[in-house]
Amino acid sequence: MMRIENGTVVGHDAMGPDYRVLTLKLPDVAPLAKPGQFIHLRLAQLHDAVLRRPFSIYRVDGNHLSILYKTVGRGTASMQTLRLNDTASVVGPLGNGFPLDLADSLTPVLVAGGYGVAPLYFLARKMTRRGILFIGGAKAADILLADEFRALDWEVQVATDDGSLGVKGLVTVALDAWLAASAPHTQPEFFACGPNGMLKAVGDRAIGGNQKAWLSLDRHMGCGVGACLACVQKVRLSGQETLARVCKDGPIFEARDVIWEN
């Protein structure tokens, strides 16, 4: 079930130098939201834009729903001007979300690229058990929410391209070291959100280890509800190649179902 409603801005705060958290009061949408789902946002400040902008849900607290964003284009630049009590139109929650019914024998292993950590934090808060988060970014300032995960009693391992925090290199460097050390006594199930290369790398490890990986895909979207067929992804379902709508059939796909091209 999705809804449309005008949300009132109840919080809009910086998270480090490059990121912001926007919190909207959404009494209809917020209580329906599940980790891995997203909202489609329309701003009065961007009234001439014909497409809404999709954002992963970072946290839900009662009627309040938050997204975590980085200023990367015209849409997010005008979002920065939102002040308390401004309103924004929201369609959501959209998409399928992460599965939450994890077997007792499995350890949740979360893998985030930069602010792809946002939906994973929502997931960790909804999970009844602790796991481990691997988070990678270009530099220390791109590593978000590590302390919040630790506050939930999760283990956190960090990798940065420039070595300014955690191990130097891609997040898979940290992940591979941990997998090699813990393989005999842990059964991981992966949940990942980040760039395509990272998602594929996590998926390949899961397939190689005969484990599951739930990947959050990001594609340019049109309608957000499965009508326009702009954001399709080639997938394999029950052995058949087909096109899935990332906005409606996803954005979460199991690694085995995704057919990566190029």
Binding site: D48, A49, V50, L51, R219, H220, G222, A227, C228, L229, A230, C231, V232, L243
Partner: peptide, 30 residues
């Protein structure tokens, strides 16, 4: 949405881009 005799897969992505005052689509009739 447009229907053809047999199922049709449409074009490769990207299939849509926002431009001033509108959008350009090339879904390809999937």
């Amino acid at each position: 949405k447009g229907i053809s005799l047999e199922p049709w897969g449409g074009n490769k992505t990207p299939r849509m881009v926002e431009v001033s005052g509108g959008l350009i689509n090339a879904i390809g009739l999937q």
